[in-house]
Design a binder for these strands. Structure first.
Length: 532
RNA sequence: CGGGGUGUAGCGCAGCCUGGUAGCGCACCUGCUUUGGGAGCAGGGGGCCGGCGGUUCGAAUCCGCCCACCCCGACCA
């Protein structure tokens, strides 16, 4: 296998890039078993190696592939379909809350990044720069090659956006003059680049897809309301579409977004008990307005700095979804975002039956297609069993097996991905019974994840117990806390657990309690956990 | 960026120690027969052994440098 230069001819499509990682030596051997289909990779069980299981599942379900550029990834059609479902639903929610979409450029003048001190501090270390605008031909070791043309060096290097606050606030200065221009509520769907040291498909890649909302308001109250409104949008979305029972909270000062006054988040629990930040919403105060001199004339005639928010979710959500729900057989996709919600697998005996069964299946597909994302798997080079394994691996919520027996009884035979249950359903009223099934799967997935989160959330009051327990038992730890960045850093150093957030609900419990670390009067209830 | 590991056909591996120009299983292609949980038989295609350099008559194999990926840290969505 070509590893260092898997560039491919133009006749191929990008998702066929071949650059599969080798398992580390210590990981359990995965043998290719007889009957495994095209390019299939065996999946390491979660109990053996959770990280490897995650990577195997992505390969096996064909969600993504590695790119020739370190830290980047190719999102394959099965993965991109999930992103499209996420985009479609979130975009609707953004529009319903009064936002409009726009697009700001990929390139940002280098000087813009130095305008807001904390923002610089936060992003400077992971920025990609464009320094030239032209290549020229040359030869290296006698072979044709290209190199940057020295004559094309840019006066001022361009930064590939790690986030767009700076370019957006540069523009907002031109667009905002009066209180009548506010609030300004803009979202953009875009890619951003952060040159990460350590990457992992979907969870952390050098380039990723996301949306970033940037709003400007006349006063702080409205901006804070907007921050919390969008946090609620994210929470509703995560519960309803991804079946992720996220916890909404506020970040401590050390976990806050560079340049924000307050950062709010939704945190999701993965099956290994680790936490994953699945979305953020920031109250930026007047920091960017000050840095980019964005003022408006208020009703009293005076000029004031505007108040700002920004909020975003990324393709990381796909990683969260995979890690929260999938099993040792592969992906388990929530029906609301599954690329295919229903797959029909025909079963026949002999050529004449084949035609009849396929015709029956076509009619079934036509009936269901108006309401669901349906695929009829009519391949005749593999047996039905092989199809079952394939679609299970790819996370399809419902499989309809249709053979002569089902035809005779006017049934379809249903297999459910989440619990492997199988049962017949009448084709009469099939659309509404499938609707019910998918709805119940969606709900069940949220319930299972919620139970898992609750049973792995531990309440503790003293640090020694915490230290012992967090080393052996992963999960979230809800503790009374006296907010202190130095103590927080000490806990991270000692236990690797970090302060995920102060949950928005239940803060009143902290009253009268002592901090589990220092014994001082608790200021917050805090969640500590290992995190991605 | 530090510590550890791995790179041989799409995937999983053998060959390397003891240099002689690459093999196995699955997958893939063609044909026929098959299809209620990973089909059978027959025939066939595909790899300059991650890259560059060195040693040698000759390098997948020995030596050096580099690159990529995975794991554990530091940093982060």
């Amino acid at each position: 296998m070509e590893r260092t230069s898997p560039y491919i001819s133009g006749a191929h499509t990008c998702y066929e890039l071949a650059c599969i990682p080798q398992p580390a030596q210590d990981t359990p051997t995965k043998n290719t078993e007889k009957g495994m289909s095209t390019h299939e990779l065996a999946i390491t069980p979660r109990a053996d190696d959770y990280s490897q299981w995650y990577l195997d599942t992505i390969q096996a379900a064909q969600l993504a592939d590695y790119s020739p550029v370190k830290g980047c990834m190719v999102i394959r059609p099965m993965g991109y379909a999930i992103w499209e479902a996420i985009q479609k639903d979130l975009d609707r929610r953004f529009k319903e809350t009064g936002h409009t979409n726009a697009y700001f450029p990929l390139f940002i003048p280098q000087s813009f990044l130095s305008r807001e001190a904390e923002h610089v501090e936060g992003f400077a270390k992971e920025c990609a720069l464009v320094t030239h605008h032209r290549l020229r031909s040359t030869t290296v070791d006698g072979k044709a090659a290209v190199e940057p043309d020295p004559d094309s060096r840019l006066e001022e290097p361009l930064v590939v956006r790690p986030t767009s606050e700076t370019i957006i606030w540069h523009m907002y200065r031109r667009w905002i003059d009066s209180h009548r221009d506010l609030p300004l509520l803009i979202n953009q769907w875009a890619n951003v680049v952060r040159w990460e040291m350590k990457t992992r498909p979907f969870l952390r890649t050098a380039e990723f897809l996301w949306q970033e909302g940037h709003t400007a308001h006349a006063n702080s109250r409205e901006a804070i309301e907007e921050t919390l409104r969008m946090l609620q949008v994210y929470s509703d979305f995560a519960h309803e579409l991804l079946a992720l029972p996220v916890v909404s909270g506020r970040k401590s000062s050390s976990e806050r977004f560079a340049g924000a006054v307050d950062t709010y988040c939704i945190e999701a629990m993965m099956q290994n008990g680790w936490a994953l930040q699945a979305g953020t919403s920031h109250f930026l105060g007047q920091n960017f307005a000050r840095a980019f001199d964005v003022t408006f004339q208020d009703t009293d005639g005076r000029r004031r700095l505007v108040w700002a928010t920004s909020w975003g979710v990324s393709t990381r959500l796909i990683g969260a979804m995979i890690m929260a729900h999938s099993d040792d057989k592969g992906l388990v996709a929530p029906p609301a975002v599954a690329p295919f919600q229903v797959v029909i697998t025909p079963i026949w005996k002999g050529a004449s039956k084949k035609l009849q069964v396929l015709e029956y299946c076509e009619r079934l597909k036509a009936e269901l297609s108006s309401a669901f994302r349906v695929h009829l798997d009519d391949r005749d080079n593999i047996k039905p069993g092989a199809k079952y394994y394939e679609w299970e691996r790819k996370g399809v919520p419902l499989r309809l097996e249709v053979g002569p027996r089902d035809m005779a009884r006017e049934n379809v035979f249903v297999a459910r991905r989440i619990d492997a249950k199988k049962f017949p359903l009448s084709i009469h009223g099939i659309r509404s019974s499938i609707r019910q099934e998918l709805d119940s799967i969606q709900l069940k997935m949220l319930q299972m994840a919620t139970e898992k989160r609750e049973s792995n959330t531990h309440r503790l009051a003293d640090y020694d117990t915490f230290k012992n327990q967090v080393a052996q038992q992963s999960g979230w730890y809800l503790v009374p806390w006296y907010d202190d960045a130095r103590e927080e850093a000490a806990i991270k150093a000692e236990t690797r657990a970090t302060l995920r957030c102060f949950p928005l609900e239940g803060q009143e419990e902290a009253k009268g309690l002592s901090c589990f670390k220092t014994g001082r009067p608790a200021t917050h209830m805090a969640i500590f956990a290992r995190a991605y």
